[in-house]
Design a protein around this nucleic acid. Structure first.
Lengths: 156, 156
DNA sequence: TGACAATAGACAACATGGTTGTCTGTTTAC
DNA sequence: GTAAACAGACAACCATGTTGTCTATTGTCA
């Protein structure tokens, strides 16, 4: 059964979705309702140094307005605080809160758990080589997580 | 460098995007402007037997209204024709046109080409086993291609 | 130093693609 | 023959992105 290129693409998408769906539904069951991948990735970017809306937008290849909307949600839910930058009155500095770090770590743990499960199925070296191959395929293309629609879907 | 579960998810997403971006931009350069994955998958579903809007909606796990909107686009571009069903006056039967088959085959060829390139890189048996593993990971979950946002994005 | 360009963020308008709800007409099932 | 189910159309709405415009602030440089 030689698969086609289209099937391969679908397979990659399906694998991603399968992981993300598991993670979002598990997070939801732990009380983090409507926590979407896009929130996770925004938090990661902020932790990684994106400390303003414009900055976050640049890093995630999204308009600053879109970034600002995401930030508004995260602030409203207490995952991020936004305070005026003392050094630049135009800016508001972003910081991930303890709650934000907590949800990130739980999300990460869930994904890690899925990966471990998979590792047990196919073996550690197999998984490593698969990851290496995917890395080669992706190359240096930045992975952009702008994601309305299904990526952001709760898939309840 | 032991990767994390989140990285794996991102890798899967990135791989998919990388294939799809290549395909859409190549199709665009061949004159198929704004032909998005969702169109491809709708055509595939119609060829596979979804011959009405409601049917297409069911098969792609999308509301019939959403399916109808997609069909409207495909009809407008000449990839699909919609004619009253002689056996059921409620229905309009869908049929993929020659142009529709053509764009499908070109899209498929582009993806196939990418897959071949990859096969040369990592070897045929390696690719097969990777696909088998992804298949196992995805399991029986239906892959739903509802996809506003980046999935549907043209990515210049 | 003073003027002009660049930047941050807010606000509004709009695009895309999906959803639900309602309505009409047709078919199917008792 | 009547009631339920179904197909499709239409409208309203939601989510998430975009561009455009505006104000305030900062940085640059003549």
């Amino acid at each position: 059964m030689s698969r086609s290129g289209a099937d391969l693409a679908l397979l990659l998408l399906g694998s991603y979705r399968s992981m993300v769906n598991a993670a979002t539904s598990e997070l939801a069951s732990r009380g983090y309702k409507d926590f979407k991948p896009i929130h996770e990735f925004a938090l990661r970017a902020i932790v990684a140094g994106a400390d303003s809306a414009s900055d976050l937008g640049r890093r995630t290849s999204v308009s600053k307005q879109a970034a600002a909307k995401t930030i508004a949600v995260l602030v409203e839910r207490g995952f991020v605080v936004s305070a005026p930058d003392p050094n630049d009155a135009r800016r508001k500095r972003l910081q991930v809160t303890g709650a934000g770090l907590e949800v990130m770590s739980q999300g990460e743990a869930i994904l890690e758990n899925l990966r471990e499960k998979w590792k047990k199925q196919i073996g550690s070296t197999e998984l490593a080589s698969l990851e290496a191959r995917l890395t080669a395929l992706v190359g240096d293309a930045a992975i952009r997580i702008d994601a309305p629609g299904w990526v952001a879907q709760d898939s309840g």
